[in-house]
Simulated assay, not measured.
Amino acid sequence: MNVGFIGLGVMGKPMAVHLVDAGHQVVVFNRSRPKVAELEARGAVGGTSPAHVGEKADVVVTMLPDSPDVEEVLFGAEGVVSTLRPGSLVIDCSTISPDAAVTIAARLAAMDIAFVDAPVSGGEAGAIAGTLAVMMGGEEEAVRRAGEVLTAVAATLVHVGPVGAGQLVKAANQMLVAGNIALVGEAVTLLQRTDVDVDAALTVLGGGLAASKVLEAKAPKMLARDFAPGFRVDLHYKDLKIALAAAERAQIAVPLTGVITQLVQALRSAGDGGLDHSALIKSLERLSGTSSDSR
Rank of each mutant, 00 (worst) to 15 (best):
V177G: 04
G137W: 02
L150S: 05
P119G: 04
K221C: 05
V177Y: 02
L215K: 06
M175C: 13
M175G: 05
G185K: 13
V169E: 09
E124S: 13
A224S: 11
P119E: 10
E148V: 05
G207T: 12
R232C: 01
A155E: 15
V116Y: 03
T131H: 06
D234M: 03
R144H: 09
M136V: 11
G166Y: 04
E124A: 11
E140K: 10
V160R: 08
N180L: 03
V116T: 10
K213E: 13
P220D: 11
G207E: 11
A142D: 08
V163D: 05
A187V: 14
Q192G: 03
G166H: 07
A152E: 11
V184G: 01
D112Q: 12
F227D: 06
T156K: 06
A101Q: 07
F231E: 09
A201S: 12
K213I: 05
V143C: 10
P220A: 10
D234R: 06
E141M: 03
G208V: 11
A200Q: 11
A110L: 04
I104P: 01
A106E: 14
L223S: 07
Y237F: 13
V149P: 07
A142H: 13
S212M: 08
L235R: 05
A171V: 10
N180A: 14
A133Y: 07
D234E: 14
H236P: 00
V116D: 01
A228W: 05
R107M: 02
V120E: 04
E148M: 05
